[in-house]
Simulated assay, not measured.
Amino acid sequence: MMINAQDIHDGINIINQTQTEADLESARLHWLGKKGLLTNAFKALGALDKDERVEKAKSLNEFKEKIQAALVQSKLRISQILLNEKLNQQLDMTLPARDAIKGNTHPISQVINQLHRFFELRGFTSYSAEHNFDVEEESNNFSLLNIPENHPARSMQDTFFIGSQLLRTHVSASQPRILKQLNPPIKAVVFGRVYRSDQPDVTHVPVFHQMECLYIDKKCHFGHLKDTIDAFIRYLFGHSMKTRYRSSYFPFTEPSVEIDVWMPEEKQWLEILGAGMVHPNVIKNCGHDPDSFRGFAFGVGIERLAMLYFGLKDVRQLYGADVELLSGCDLWQ
């Protein structure tokens, strides 16, 4: 079915007479929806010869512009009508005030605050203000951390580049800044956001929070690392939390491990952080003697800890608008 100018004229008159948003949406779908008159007319162009197709396409584009303009004007007109109705409403000033919703510190901030308190008690200093940059140099995010040039994390598919810089993929990018600015012994923690090219799902979001812990000294060993991790897990979750250490690989630590915690309800292990002894190349790249100094480092996802503590099943709940859920999350209730 081909459409002529009279059809468009009649259609515009109907659009101009709509009084509600629902009626306007019905008119839009009638003309521009997947099965709308104009949509079907454009599909039918394929059956015409070339010269006729060009002529009809030009007419249809003009018709489409007129319909779209009428829809826009009617939308503004209806919006103004609805606004006027609201402004003309009589308010009953004798009604009691609505109960104010009691707010609470966000679960992510609660976990950060408690971790900050724990590491402060153990003599660590937070450098979240001085050495904490969302937009980082590629050298700090990769090269100085012993990540090779051909590592897949350097690709455009996994990292957001901004010119010669990038959005950091881990808070470990703060390590080179701290190591180049400070002299050992170093006991540092950094809290911040990181950015990954991840599709959101129950356990992943493209922007999330991490804590990086770094300890550099002359006599640091793996026992110090394990004691620190075990202590902060007990601090958050209590002595009943079961943990296990698995051998792993990270370019910036050697040896490397991943730490899992046992979830009784799900009857499975959940990985919560990666850790290891700082690789000698990282210490050397940042201007220190790896024969004189050793250290450990680990990074932990704050959202993962919050999900685990509050019993959340989907990380996106932490970024939703469920005020009742978020207000009910109290780390020390």
Rank of each mutant, 00 (worst) to 15 (best):
G223Q: 03
D92K: 10
L45D: 10
G295W: 01
I178F: 09
Q6Y: 08
G223C: 04
P280G: 05
T228D: 04
M1W: 10
R196K: 05
V261T: 13
K66V: 07
D230C: 06
D23W: 06
I272E: 13
F237E: 04
H170T: 04
D49N: 12
N132H: 05
N150Q: 13
T243D: 09
S248Y: 07
K43C: 11
F310M: 00
K58H: 12
I216C: 00
P185V: 03
A100M: 14
H131A: 11
K58R: 13
T39D: 06
G238S: 05
R244E: 07
V111K: 05
I178Q: 03
D260S: 13
E303L: 06
T105M: 14
Q19K: 13
F250I: 10
K284G: 06
F119H: 12
F208W: 02
P280F: 00
L273N: 11
K43M: 15
P184S: 06
A69I: 08
N285Q: 05
Q199A: 14
P280C: 03
D99Q: 15
L83N: 12
E130M: 05
S79T: 08
V111W: 01
Q17Y: 09
M156D: 02
H239L: 08
E266P: 02
L95M: 09
R234P: 00
G11M: 10
V54K: 14
V171P: 01
N88D: 14
G192I: 11
R234L: 00
L95P: 02
K58M: 14
H279I: 01
Q89H: 10
F119R: 08
A27F: 01
P290E: 09
K75Y: 09
E149K: 14
G192A: 12
A297F: 00
T18H: 07
D230I: 03
T159Y: 04
C286Q: 01
K75I: 05
